[in-house]
């Protein structure tokens, strides 16, 4: 049985078609990434899969339970961690945990045992009696995730779990996610952090303008755009002049500053390397390092969605 099965899902808001016959399946125990630019339909999909919004067409099941007809049964299987840390600021971390347990019908003894275990795992046990109002953003995020796990769900919806977090919280959350996947929990992850999806997900779906643009493993997706390769070069002189001069070569499709290096996108990395060496010789500049790179998941995302690549700090300046 699939953990999630989505068939021809459609959602209209008046004239606007937010989801256009979206279909995919997520296998039990899989970490499934759901990527897309803002307004692509990610949130609408999650709201439908968690039973908050009804679809205007198609169907979706969670472990065989229809999300419209059997909403309550389907929800019992899932934990939901939204992008916003939706915890109650005016009560303690412990009260938050107990409230989440009661909402998910966890008995008192189990609730207390699991609440203690989770607060310890997330490094919040010592602060259990403190009001959440005084917690940092990372602590609130950890508490949100702990609340989402209080009923031991077999499917976890995670919306931007590590966005904008401190290093400690980030590490704790990543470790917990790893242990969950090792225990066979299915994870449905939406994230803007493409590298996170690349490292974490077994498969990734890219949604754009309400339609699924591609679904596959990150490695296979990257192979589909093998033509997008790049050469990253560090010049002794900083590379600003090299960037402007070499960007005009016919074989260079795009050039940008990445930290102290310059990255040139090309279909012919060998030919470009010869041009770079020739440029360095003629301009008395020295190539400190040069690396050829294959396509990244970000390249796939940009190719499929048509969004602009984010500018580096240097380019913005």
């Amino acid at each position: 049985m699939h953990a999630i099965e989505v068939n021809g899902l459609e959602k209209r808001f008046g004239e606007i078609l937010a989801l256009d016959h979206v279909s995919f399946t997520v296998e039990t125990g899989e970490v499934f990434g759901y990527l897309g630019p803002n307004g692509a339909g990610k949130t609408t999909t999650i709201r439908i899969l968690t039973g908050i919004t009804a679809p205007t067409g198609g169907s979706a099941t969670i472990f065989g339970w229809d999300i419209v007809r059997d909403t309550t049964q389907a929800r019992r299987k899932m934990g939901i961690v939204y992008e916003t840390s939706n915890v109650y600021d005016d009560i303690t971390a412990w009260q938050n945990m107990m409230f989440a347990g009661e909402l998910y019908h966890v008995g008192r003894i189990d609730r207390e045992e699991r609440g203690k275990e989770l607060l310890e795992i997330f490094g919040l046990w010592d602060r259990r009696a403190s009001r959440v109002k005084g917690f940092s953003k990372g602590m609130k995020r950890r508490l949100t995730l702990a609340m989402g796990l209080i009923h031991d769900p077999t499917l976890l919806f995670l919306d931007e779990p590590t966005s904008g977090l401190d290093v400690q919280s980030n590490l704790i959350i990543r470790e917990v996610l790893q242990s969950l996947t090792e225990r066979g929990v299915t994870v449905f992850l939406t994230t803007h952090n493409i590298e996170e999806a690349n490292q974490t997900c077994d498969r990734v779906a890219i949604i754009n303008r309400g339609k699924i643009a591609a679904i596959d493993s990150p490695e296979r997706l990257k192979k589909t755009i093998q033509s997008v390769q790049s050469v990253e070069v560090a010049f002794e002189g900083g590379g600003a002049r090299a960037l402007s001069e070499l960007a005009g070569l016919p074989m260079v499709s795009e050039a940008r500053k990445v930290g102290d290096k310059v990255r040139f996108y090309t279909e012919d990395p060998g030919g470009l390397l010869r041009e770079i060496v020739s440029y360095a010789d003629s301009h008395q500049d020295r190539v400190v390092s040069a690396t050829t790179l294959g396509p990244t998941l970000e390249d796939v995302f940009i190719r499929l969605t048509g969004v602009q690549r984010p500018k580096s700090r240097e380019e913005e300046q």
């Binding site: 039973g51 908050i52 929800r75 989440a100 998910y104 609340m147």
Partner: peptide, 8 residues
């Protein structure tokens, strides 16, 4: 949203 997405 926490209430709306709970199994109740």
């Amino acid at each position: 949203e926490r209430l709306l997405s709970a199994p109740v």
